[in-house]
Simulated assay, not measured.
Amino acid sequence: MTDSLLSIEGFAADGFGSVREAFERAIATDTDTGAALSIWRDGELVVDLAGGRADSGAGLPFGVNTPSVIFSCTKGLASVLVARLVQDGLLDYDAPVVDYWPEYGAAGKSNTRVADALSHRAGLSAPRQDWTTEDLIDWDRATRLLAAQEPLFEPGSAWAYHAITHGWLAGELVRRVTGLLPGEYFERLISGPLAVDAWIGLPAARRGQVATMVVGETLATHVSSQQSDVRAGASVWPVRALTLGGALPLALVGPDEGFNRSDVQAAQIPGAGGISTAHGLAKIWSAVVTETDGVRLLSDETLHRASLVRSEGAPFFDSPAPWPRWGMGFQLDSEARRYLGESSLGHDGAGGQVAFGDPNERIGFAFVTNRMEAVDSRGTDIVAALKEAIS
């Protein structure tokens, strides 16, 4: 079903009208960009909406089947992969990383635990040496550089957001245990069985079908402010966490830059490079918390352990409150990122992406957008409408 006035495609089941209205408000001012929203409850699809444009230059609509870059929502997917290996007895959160990845012990990192690597406590949030795009898209080169690097602070002693590097830490653990790169394990464990359009490393056959990411006004202003702060003497490390010293633009995208580049989209970058439809991403989170199409990815016991708070409060490198909270790679409900409540776990992504599951409410949720903003309440407002609708 298509609403021609608002250019809304899809449906919202009875009882979710307020959620549809929140989505309509989220895209009401979009003339060149778009978004999609999908919600599953009790393993059934209850909301599937999309609207706006996926590529204003080509005039392509943003539909329910439009894949989009999900940025750090990919960390949530990588954390599901690791949690499943823990559940299957193949990986131990409390074990040293070197038990699985011996080379990682270089430069004072031998005591780093798997839990530290997942919860942003590894001290490798940014590279000491500048990376190139070639480093970024080469799995072996990226993991070798991180394994050799001296940490920025004592591992386990504090937290700092590993904006891009988190994915190689989690992903190399997956590779060492399974023999598969994380994108391959993801397809075998998750996207294949669930039959969803979601990838860590975009297949060549889907090249050119991904929504074009656009830097919005508030993100452009924020990037300019970050650059000015560094020039004025602020710590460079949070900026390097995003750019890797030159491999990516600070906004993460631009015209044929960063995650708009086809070679970057094809690479496996599980800290920020996942690509998915909202429909597929929400179905995955549904299967994390409740049986969906015959698939249940994590048990209640595993979810409980993975959701124990590992990192919260002020980070090692100063940043303004409110601050997020982290479990075993999963982002938890906090003042900085509101989900449905204490039982929710997931991960948001740069520019306004939001994806999570809630085992108490048996909800899988995903909102994706190609208009990237820094000051952005779109996803938060939709989650708030969902919370009211199910209360």
Rank of each mutant, 00 (worst) to 15 (best):
S235G: 01
G51F: 09
L297I: 10
G294E: 06
G63E: 07
V80M: 12
D135Y: 03
A282K: 02
L60D: 09
R176T: 03
R141M: 13
D348E: 12
H162F: 13
T133R: 15
V210M: 12
N65G: 15
F11H: 13
A287R: 03
G258L: 11
N260G: 12
F316S: 05
G233C: 02
F62P: 00
A282M: 03
F186M: 14
L37T: 08
A389S: 15
G352H: 12
S157I: 02
P238E: 01
E172M: 02
H120R: 00
V47C: 10
P320T: 02
A350Q: 12
L146S: 12
S286F: 05
P238A: 04
A54Y: 04
F259P: 04
A321E: 13
Y161T: 08
G313Q: 06
L303C: 13
R296G: 04
Y185F: 14
L219V: 13
T66D: 09
P102R: 00
A267C: 06
A336E: 00
P255M: 12
A95N: 04
A83Q: 05
D55P: 05
E257N: 10
G171A: 07
H347A: 11
G208N: 01
G192Q: 01
A36L: 08
Q331K: 05
I27A: 11
H279P: 10
G167P: 03
Y339R: 13
V289N: 07
A78R: 04
V239N: 03
E44T: 11
L145P: 00
A251D: 09
A35E: 12
R128Q: 07
A58T: 05
A251W: 00
L242A: 13
P193W: 04
L189R: 08
L340D: 08
D130T: 05
W139V: 04
A247W: 01
N65W: 07
M213Q: 14
A58R: 13
D376T: 11
S307R: 15
D30N: 15
A78T: 13
T290V: 12
G327M: 01
D333Y: 09
P193D: 03
P155M: 05
R206K: 15
V47W: 13
A232K: 05
A306R: 06
L248V: 02
G208T: 02
D42M: 05
A251S: 15
G89D: 07
G364H: 07
R310W: 08
D30I: 03
L386H: 00
A234D: 11
R207V: 14
H347K: 03
A272I: 08
G156Y: 00
G327V: 04
W285F: 15
P61Q: 05
T74Y: 11
I137E: 01
D140N: 03
E217M: 10
A350G: 10
F259E: 06
